[in-house]
Design a protein around this nucleic acid. Structure first.
Lengths: 118, 118
DNA sequence: CGATCATATTCCCATATGGGAAAATTAGCA
DNA sequence: TGCTAATTTTCCCATATGGGAATATGATCG
């Protein structure tokens, strides 16, 4: 029985997974090439366990995939999940400039209407 | 003194702010028009306090702006902050299809017919 | 000023971290 | 069969929720 609804799990969806800056850095790193856990850890200055945990989250939401290569596990980028976010934010594209205008207009209303000097 | 680094605050940046589904719904709602807190609460089936808290987060990261209108406070969309996310995910656009190919190839090496959901 | 509607904040709870340290697990090789 | 390297998992901590309930603050009007 659910009593309360705390913050959603990072593994629940891609939005949560990339809310963590280090995980975004990992994804950016993997643009260049596949990397082992140790490789990622080295490049980002993290410990291996911490890196492994981040990679696990990314794996669970499907943003990376793994395969064994010798003694290492190579993590590779699977950016398809980011498309969902790109599309969602893209739905606001028409509002980017409009919001600017609205805000300007709003500010104008304040300044012009009240003539308050700041 | 910082002893550990727990999950980042939702107010730390836009990525964290929109990690919460209800806040994304609020932003989508505000595409249509400005809304009062009660208006948002009604449309999403939330209590007013909860709605107010979500709107506070969105305000602190700059995704919405507020102005008084009679007895109500009208919240309006300021989507400019979403551009950062759109741009960041856009940096992976060239990898969306490529990742698909990589994954297909990878799956092929394993077996041959695996259901890949996209 | 007081009454009232509309929001915001506080207090509380259980949950979900993110990282450090250490132990467990897995993979590849002699 | 062991041994070693690489990675994952477990245990622990302090922090940050998100929502409910109750309270405080704010704004408007008489």
């Amino acid at each position: 029985m659910i009593v309360c609804m705390p913050r959603a799990a990072t593994t629940s969806d891609v939005f949560n997974a990339i809310a963590e800056p280090q995980r975004r850095e990992i994804l950016t790193l993997l643009k260049a090439s596949e990397l082992s856990v140790g490789g990622v850890a080295d490049k980002l200055g993290l410990r291996q366990p911490a890196t492994s945990k981040h990679l696990r989250v990314l794996r669970e939401v499907g943003l990376v995939h793994v395969h064994q290569s010798g003694k290492q596990r190579l993590y590779g980028l699977d950016a398809r999940g980011l498309r969902k976010i790109h599309d969602w934010t893209g739905g606001f594209e028409e509002f980017w400039n409009q919001s600017f205008d609205r805000l300007n207009e709003y500010v104008k209303t304040l300044k012009g209407g009240t003539n308050v000097d700041g």
